[in-house]
């Protein structure tokens, strides 16, 4: 995850409390989504950014996951995300996200 985004996640967590944080990802690949999710739960796996060695355990979802998708107005979702849902491997992304949450999430 971008070092600047890591810094912002850390700052917001310190300001609002980890239990009040929800991270929504839009990565196009399961692996990239998994890395970002790991960064905000277990800590930065590349040990490069502000979240290196910092396990926040935040709630993290991909926008394709039903927990998030169901909160949208279906027309808005279709307009904004319908096309990407058609071309990306949604199942793989959802599985990856579930795995990371089960392994590292502290607010499930």
């Amino acid at each position: 995850m971008d070092l600047e985004n890591q810094r912002r996640v850390l700052e917001f967590t310190e300001e609002f409390g980890a239990e009040n944080m929800l991270i929504i990802l839009g990565a196009a690949e399961a692996e990239a989504a998994g890395l970002a999710a790991e960064t905000v739960t277990a800590g930065d796996p590349t040990y490069a950014g502000p979240l290196a060695g910092v396990s926040l355990g935040l709630q993290v979802f991909h926008v394709f996951e039903p927990e998030i998708k169901d909160q949208f107005d279906p027309d808005v979702y279709e307009e904004q995300l319908g096309m990407m849902e058609m071309v990306l491997d949604v199942d793989e992304i959802v599985d990856e996200m579930k795995g990371i949450r089960e392994q590292f999430g502290q607010f499930n």
Binding site: A28, E29, E31, A32, L35, G82, M83, M84, M86, V87
Partner: peptide, 29 residues
């Protein structure tokens, strides 16, 4: 590096738009 196949992702998006515009079938992507 987990960033996928960038040109392929672009082509899929162009094709998906073609499907939405009914210029081609989903199976043609």
């Amino acid at each position: 590096a987990g960033a996928g196949d960038v040109p392929l992702a672009n082509y899929k998006m162009i094709a998906a738009l073609g499907v939405m515009r009914k210029e081609m079938e989903r199976t043609d992507i």
